[in-house]
């Protein structure tokens, strides 16, 4: 439990650090939301400074940060100037969509990577191994954007799946079952793009840690005791290889999140990505910070989940935890 507590404390400190840095950088960035208004002769400078005062932007940085922290603790995360409402509810709706996308992509990624990693490690230098290595090198070396566009192009050419948005226009009139089908079809492409890009990295890591585990003396010894190959692979080697793989889970979540921001923009998925982009372009200060904080929150949350899973899987870490009592 102390182990989890430590990780939790670390996560909170990390989030506080991220928020401070966010403030610093947005302060340093040139331009503000009111730049366009200033160019408009119909709006007087007095109005603008009144607006600035209204949103608290005339205060020094430290005061604004303090205020923001207070509002974050109330789960508001500041006030969006463009939408004229608290940031949190705005972000929350988009967050749900992003979460739906990344979780599905995460599941698919691991569903692809684990069997493929185990298989290629078992049949090293085999045809599948070579194909997978080649394919993953290709995917890793090509920018995500290019892959996304290529997948979209193929999908358009052969009308494989709908592109853009999360639902069809007539979504509200559909029955529950067809609603789900519609959603799934819209989900297909962005999830596919994300999963392919992420699997290319993950499958290599899993293969490497499986190879290491399979070559370990304890797996060799177990083989000497006549234990079946399949059981050797999935019970003995995979459990030993799980440790680095689970640590990877945290990283893969980070990769998926940053990937999803891009893919959402490209595929028109109404998630955090387009919102943050839009907010950044219009210098909607608190919305940007809020968006970044939400992403950071998932990342930290994902790592926390990975840490807890590690604790459950690896007795060596568990020992460190219990020793602390």
């Amino acid at each position: 439990m102390i182990y989890v507590g430590q990780r939790l404390l670390r996560a909170i400190l990390l989030l506080a650090g991220v928020s401070a840095l966010c403030f610093l950088f947005t302060e340093m960035a040139p331009g503000s939301f009111f730049d366009e208004m200033r160019l408009n002769p119909q709006i007087s400078p007095e109005t603008i400074s009144a607006l600035r005062a209204h949103y608290g932007l005339d205060q020094p940085l430290a005061v604004r940060y303090g205020r923001w922290m207070k509002s974050a603790l109330h789960a508001d995360f500041g006030y969006s100037i463009a939408y004229n409402m608290p940031v949190a509810p705005l972000l929350w709706k988009r967050t749900q969509n992003t979460l739906l996308l990344t979780t599905t992509a995460l599941l698919l990624t691991w569903f692809i990577s684990v069997p493929l990693g185990v298989w290629t490690a078992n049949w090293r230098e085999g045809l599948l191994d070579k194909t997978v290595t080649l394919a993953s090198s290709f995917v890793i070396s090509v920018p995500e954007l290019v892959i996304a566009v290529a997948v979209l192009a193929v999908a358009v050419r052969w009308r494989l799946a709908p592109i853009g948005g999360m639902t069809s226009t007539d979504f509200d009139g559909l029955s529950e079952w067809t609603k789900l089908q519609d959603l799934t079809r819209h989900l297909a492409l962005p999830v596919l793009i994300l999963a392919v890009c992420e699997s290319a990295v993950i499958v290599r890591h899993i293969r490497a840690s499986m190879v290491e585990a399979l070559d370990a003396p304890y797996v060799h010894a177990a083989r000497g005791f006549g234990i079946r190959r399949a059981r050797l692979l999935f019970r003995h080697a995979l459990s030993a290889a799980a440790n680095p793989a689970i640590s990877l889970l945290g990283f893969s979540l980070a990769g998926l999140l940053s990937g999803s921001l891009l893919v959402e923009v490209v595929c028109g998925w109404p998630g955090l990505g387009p919102l943050i982009l839009e907010a950044t372009l219009s210098r909607d200060l608190y919305l940007v910070i809020g968006g970044i904080m939400f992403s950071a929150l998932f990342m930290v949350g994902g790592n926390l989940v990975a840490d807890v899973m590690l604790l459950a899987f690896d007795p060596r870490i568990r020992r460190e935890g219990t020793n602390a009592d």
Binding site: P217, V219, A221, G224, G226, H236, N243, P315
Partner: peptide
């Protein structure tokens, strides 16, 4: 496979390395 462990067994050289660290 049926012979290994059942008819002929090998006691490995280095006990520190020959046991799986994540299994009881």
């Amino acid at each position: 496979r049926a012979i290994r462990g059942q008819e002929i067994s090998l006691i490995p050289q280095d006990p520190a390395l020959a046991l799986n660290p994540v299994m009881t």
